[in-house]
Write a protein that binds this DNA or RNA. Structure first.
Length: 442
RNA sequence: GGAGAGAUGGCAGAGCGGUUGAAUGCACCGCACUCGAAAUGCGGCAUAGGGGCAACUCUAUCGGGGGUUCGAAUCCCUCUCUCUCCGCCA
């Protein structure tokens, strides 16, 4: 969420940033006009309240001195103000809400170094800080080569028997899957492997959060009010709870309404949770296989930092996510999303796209975003800078997948498939598979 | 699910209709004392929004929201959460 004061002071920068976003038509002048009305109401209301308070004090004093006549006189005086104050308060509430509603649907502003573009065709490949295509190619696993035509994940022998879309459809409808046997185990192994990696090598604290959350939490991270149709809700008493679309929601909200000490930062959290998305806008896309499901597992990374550290933390988080793929020997590339392709709360986003030989293409497996104070402002998440008597400042928040477990399963299956329908197990995963070196063999 | 109690500043904890943004203690910061530290003493120490070049000033906030009142941390309604007891339960 934007700070209206910032918009007031930087209307041109705001308008320029918004013009680069997709489907955003808001103008700073509209917002400033609301703010103008808001401030006028506040001035009038404050004046009336000041008078009332002053009179009320005098009434108290008069009563203390048993001067009832004087008290009655003052009460008559203040009665006239009473006509305005409740109306003024209601008006202030209304205009505050109007401003908040307007601000809460405005997406974040991209950093200056984010490429400008309308859609994913404007994304730019990223090779790491000070990186080049050559250095990146050295550091990242190479594309595998096959002596046969590689299949898509759901066509591979071991998956055909252990990845059941038909029975899932009978239970739950389309975009669900039932995993069985060694494929289910492989999914579990991947999740454990990723959590262990992030907690032991990158200092993330493991979290097991609720997967049902309130509207407030979703508002905090930016899914509400604008993206309600992407979520699943379940009734709960008079209210409702949402199934989390990502563990970013509960983990980022761990610091909501908190004032942290600077010494506590950065906070780094990781969780393996199921995620639930209605995929309302994705009808007809990726309908085969388990690439796009209503329910999938994901290991998520969340960092809470100072403003100064946020950009460094972004690179660090990207590296943590990349390390998953490096250790698994999966070829990938990293894209910097352009202004038109970025998510609502992000100031800059890197997507990691893993190579899927069966599809003969790269597919997103991780998205790593730095959000600045956008979410912190919505959540009232602050920290007190070290040193004496500093006012609290908003924290900066980051989130990234580390990585999507279901998609990683697909990637392992497609990249390690053998002609006989079996799949080799990457070395890093073998301890999590009871030492197995392959699954689905005869 | 039933019955009851509660939610106050970073923490603990008073206040229960009048000049209370809020006693007191702890924590924290500054100063004094000290060779230094501890102890002690003195002072400071919430957040947000307005107005003002500034000094400064006004308003709001005692879990959230609404109400009663000239005036609410204090009274009423409502929501959320916590605790105790009973019931149920993986």
């Amino acid at each position: 969420m934007f700070d209206i004061k910032w918009i007031r002071d930087n209307p041109d920068a705001f308008d320029k940033a918004m013009s680069q976003r997709k489907n955003v038509s808001v103008r700073s002048s509209d917002l400033i006009a609301i703010d103008e009305r808001r401030r006028q109401v506040i001035v009038r209301l404050n004046e009336a309240q000041e008078k009332r308070n002053s009179f009320s004090k005098q009434i108290g004093q008069a009563k203390a001195q048993k001067d009832e006549a004087r008290a009655a006189e003052l009460m008559a005086e203040v009665a006239r103000l009473k006509e305005f104050i409740p109306a003024g308060e209601a008006e202030e509430r209304a205009v505050e809400k109007e401003l908040r509603d307007a601000l809460s649907t405005i997406p974040n502003m991209a950093f200056d170094d984010v490429p400008v573009g309308d859609d994913e065709s404007g994304n730019v490949e990223y090779f790491g800080p000070n990186g080049s295509p050559e250095t990146a190619a050295q550091q990242r696993p190479a594309k595998p080569s096959f002596s046969f035509a590689p299949k898509e994940h759901f066509e591979i022998g071991v998956a055909e028997t252990n990845m059941d879309f038909e029975v899932a459809a009978r239970l739950s409808g389309s975009r669900f899957v039932v995993l069985k046997g060694q494929v289910a185990r492989l999914e579990r192994a991947l999740g454990q492997f990723m959590l262990d990696l992030h907690t032991t090598e990158f200092g993330y604290t493991e979290v097991l959060p609720p997967v049902l959350v309130r509207d407030d939490a979703l508002y905090g991270t930016g899914q509400l009010p604008k993206f309600e149709e992407d979520l699943f809700f379940t009734p709960h008493g008079e209210n409702r709870l949402a199934l989390i679309p990502t563990a970013e929601v509960p983990m980022t909200n761990l610091v909501r309404e908190a004032i942290l000490a600077e010494e506590e930062l950065p906070l780094r959290f990781t969780a393996l949770t199921p995620c639930f998305r209605s995929e309302a806008g994705s009808a007809g896309r990726d309908t085969r296989g388990m690439l796009r499901q209503h329910q999938f597992n994901k290991v998520e990374l969340v960092s809470i930092t100072t403003p100064e550290e946020a950009v460094n933390e972004h690179e660090r988080m990207l590296m943590a996510a990349e390390t998953v793929l490096r250790k698994l020997g999966l070829h990938y590339r990293v894209m910097t999303l352009c202004t038109g392709d970025m998510g609502f709360g992000a100031r800059k986003t890197y997507d990691i796209e893993v190579w899927l030989p069966g599809q003969d293409t790269y597919r997103e497996i991780s998205s790593v975003s730095v959000c600045g104070d956008f979410q912190a402002r919505r959540m009232e998440a602050r920290y007190r800078p070290a040193g004496e008597k500093q006012a609290p400042r908003y924290v900066h928040t980051l989130n990234g997948s580390g990585t999507a477990v279901g998609r990683c399963l697909i990637a392992v299956l497609e990249n390690y498939q053998q002609e006989d329908g079996s799949v080799l197990i990457p070395e890093a995963l073998q301890p999590y598979m009871g030492g197995l070196t392959s699954i689905g063999g005869k």
